[in-house]
Design a protein around this nucleic acid. Structure first.
Lengths: 222, 222
DNA sequence: ACCTGAACACCGTTCAAGT
DNA sequence: ACCTGAACACCGTTCAAGT
C-alpha cells in the first residue's frame, strides 16, 4: 500500500478528482476516455488503478458516503437532537441531488464493493447515533432506526433528483413529509422490522471466500 | 396507424413482450440482440419499430404506468378511502419492486417521451382522485396531493428495490413510515408547494416549437 | 513498477439487399 | 412496406512495448 511510486499516487489522485467531477456533471455514462483526458493520463492507466469502471465508481461513491458521515458526526453534539437529525437528512439529500451520479451509483452493483460497504456501515452508525438522540428527546418515534433514516434519505433523493432543476428545492417538501412520518404523533405500528444491513447479500462468513454472483453472465450457456 | 402490415403488427407485439420480460428479469442493460432473439426477429427489425433503445424502454415503461393507473381506478369507489389509497400505493410499489427495469426507467431520460408523459399524467390524475377522497375522509392531511403520492411511491420503490430479495417485504415498512407522514396527526407545514408536473422540463408554451424531441413517432417516416 | 496507445470485443445503430 | 444480417461507430478492457 505505502510503496507506490510517486507518479502513481499523483496519477491516482488526478484520476479520482477528474472522475468525481465528470460523474457529478454528466452522470456515470461518461466515457473512460473522457475522464482520462481530463485527468491528463492515458486510458490504460485508469485500468491499472481500478480493474473496472464500476470499481472506479465505487471508490468515488464511497468517498461521498464518507463525506455524509463526516457531516453527520459534526452534528452529533447538538442541543436540539431532532433538529440535528433533520439537518443531517437535509444535507445528505442536498448533496445527492447536486451529483448526477449519486443515484445511479446506488442503483448499480456498487453495493457489493467492500469500500462502499464499509462507508455505508459507518453512515448507518452515524445515523443510528443521531436517531437515538432524537428518539430520547421525543422528536422521533421509538421504532425508527439509523437504517430507516439512511434509506429514507435515499428515497427522497432518488425520487426528486430526476426532476432536476425544474423545481429547485422540491426535495424540501418531501423531506418534510417523510420527517413527519418519523414523528411520534402519527406513529402506527410497522409491519416489518428494520433491516440489519443495507447490503443486498448477507455478509460472508469468516473463512468463506466471497464468490461473485454466479449467474452474472448476460448470455446463458448452451 | 391502422395500415400496418400483418407481420409488422405481429412482430411489434412479439418485440414488446420479449423486451418487457427481458427488462423485468435482467434490467435495461440487456442487449438488443438478446431481446430480438427472444422475440424471434432480426436485430434490424427492432429499430424499424423503435428508433432507439430508449424509446423501446419508454414504450414498456408507459405500459406499466398505465397498469398502475388501471389498478388505481379499480380502487376509486372504495368505502374506505384511506385504505384504498394505502392499497394503491402498496400495489404500485410491489409491482415496481418486481421489475428490475422500473427504477432504471424512472432515472433515465424516459420522462421526455410523450407516451410516458401521458401515462404519467394519467397516473397522477388517478392518484389525485384517491388522495382527494382520503383527504375528505380525514385519512390524510390537507396539503397532500396526487403528485406527492406518486413521488413517494417512487421513492419507496427506488430505495428498497436495490435491497432485492434479501429482505422480501421490506418495502412494507417504509410504505408504513411514509404513509404515517401523510396522516393529519403529525402534519407540520411544508416549506414548498406541490409541483404541477412530474416532468423535468416545463411544458412548452403554445406556439414555441419544442426543440429537444425531434420525432415523437415510434415508426419514423421515410 | 508504472505508463501508454494500439488492438480487441461487445453493443447500439445504420443500411443495402432481399421478399 | 417490411425484414434481415452484415457493416459501422463507440466504448470498456487488455496487452505488448516503452520508461
Amino acid at each position: 500500500m505505502g510503496k507506490m511510486r510517486a507518479d502513481a499516487v499523483r496519477n491516482r489522485r488526478l484520476l479520482l478528482d477528474a472522475a468525481a467531477a465528470e460523474f457529478a456533471e454528466h452522470g456515470t455514462e461518461v466515457s473512460i476516455a473522457r475522464i482520462a483526458a481530463r485527468a491528463g493520463i492515458g486510458k490504460g492507466t485508469v485500468f491499472r488503478h481500478f480493474a473496472t469502471k464500476e470499481q472506479l465508481m465505487a471508490a468515488i461513491f464511497g468517498d461521498q458516503l464518507d463525506r455524509l458521515s463526516d457531516a453527520g458526526e459534526a452534528l452529533m453534539g447538538s442541543a436540539d437532537p431532532g433538529g440535528a437529525l433533520l439537518e443531517f437528512m437535509a444535507g445528505a439529500i442536498e448533496l445527492q441531488c447536486a451529483d448526477r451520479s449519486f443515484c445511479q451509483a446506488v442503483t448499480a452493483n456498487t453495493r457489493q464493493d467492500p469500500q462502499v460497504r464499509a462507508a455505508s456501515d459507518r453512515l448507518v452508525a452515524v445515523a443510528d447515533a443521531l436517531t437515538a438522540h432524537a428518539r430520547r428527546a421525543g422528536a422521533v418515534r421509538d421504532d425508527a432506526t439509523g437504517h430507516d433514516v439512511v434509506l429514507l434519505i435515499n428515497g427522497v433523493s432518488q425520487a426528486t433528483a430526476p426532476l432536476g432543476d425544474a423545481v429547485p428545492g422540491i426535495w424540501r417538501r418531501y423531506l418534510g413529509l417523510v420527517f413527519d412520518g418519523l414523528r411520534p404523533e402519527a406513529a402506527h405500528p410497522l409491519p416489518v422490522p428494520s433491516p440489519r444491513s443495507l447490503a443486498p447479500e448477507s455478509a460472508p462468513m469468516p473463512g468463506s471466500a466471497s464468490v461473485p454472483a454466479p449467474d452474472s453472465d448476460p448470455v446463458p450457456p448452451d
